[in-house]
């Protein structure tokens, strides 16, 4: 990748950052909203084209894959921008779902079916439903002040986009990774099958699909990480129970033989 392209990439990220900054919700009504969206859209399109030209396109043989890559990338980027810029929290959650689904589709395009569906089940199915649940419980009518105003928009945008630019520059740099292995490496990395075959029957691996590959690599190569994650989740679970557990007297003072009027006498209110 020539320096020109790299600078173009960074410039596009700067543009995108400026667009998102302008589009972030602020208290006063302003006409920059549209401009921000336009800038953001331009940055998204430009970034996509750059990425498509220098990273994905050379390794991709099917044009349909290419098309869907652009489609889902655009959906994901647009939805991601709306997650942070939409003033209504419920819409942010819905856009987050869209991001999760679009990213799952991108992962699916790379042949990692298991990861894609796991992303949907875990993110869209569990975490974001809980978000939506909490948002609905917390705020039933109207839009509150703290939702319509971004906190520290400048710092957040600069930090976020600088980090993204750094990562993208690194990925797009042919010296950082072997150019031939770019897309396949990504695919096998997420599928967990990039290493030397650990399945008992290497020939059957291609047919067995990546669910089995993921299972094998999780239970052999990454078993310690897996167990650690399990322990971490358990600790989180125990902690959550410990936090919410109040000592609730169970049927306090209720004597089944007592006359009806006495029942519930010592039950405390909340």
């Amino acid at each position: 990748m020539s320096p020109t392209v790299a600078y173009l990439l960074y410039a596009l990220f700067a543009l995108g950052g400026a667009g998102v900054y302008l589009a972030l919700p602020r208290s006063q009504a302003r006409p920059t909203h549209v401009a921000g969206l336009l800038l953001g859209a331009g940055a998204i399109v430009g970034g996509l084209m750059l990425l498509g030209t220098y990273v994905i396109a050379p390794s991709s043989t099917e044009s349909s894959t290419n098309f869907f890559f652009y489609l889902f990338s655009a959906i994901a980027l647009f939805a991601a921008a709306r997650v942070v810029t939409h003033p209504k929290p419920v819409y942010s959650a819905v856009y987050f779902v869209a991001v999760a689904v679009a990213v799952a589709a991108l992962v699916l395009l790379q042949g990692a079916e298991f990861l894609a569906i796991a992303l949907i089940i875990v993110y869209a199915g569990a975490i974001l439903v809980t978000y939506a649940f909490v948002i609905m419980l917390a705020q039933q009518t109207g839009v509150s002040v703290y939702d319509t105003r971004a906190r520290e928009p400048f710092a957040a945008v600069v930090l976020g986009f600088a980090a993204m630019a750094a990562i993208a520059g690194r990925i797009a740099d042919p010296n950082a990774l072997p150019a031939t292995a770019l897309a396949p490496a990504t695919a096998s990395l997420v599928a967990g099958a990039g290493e030397a075959p650990v399945t008992p029957d290497a020939g059957a691996e291609a047919q067995a699909g990546n669910t089995i590959s993921v299972g094998w690599s999780l239970m052999t190569k990454y078993v310690v990480v897996l167990e650690l994650a399990g322990v971490l989740l358990l600790v989180g679970l125990v902690g959550a129970i410990a936090l919410v557990k109040k000592k609730v007297p169970r049927d306090v003072g209720v004597d089944p033989e007592a006359p009806l009027g006495q029942i519930g006498k010592e039950v405390e209110p909340f």
Binding site: V254, P256, L260, G261, I263, G264, K265
Partner: peptide, 10 residues
């Protein structure tokens, strides 16, 4: 308290 009647206990 005498007016309280908890249906569950019935």
């Amino acid at each position: 308290d005498e007016d309280v009647l908890n249906v569950d206990d019935l």
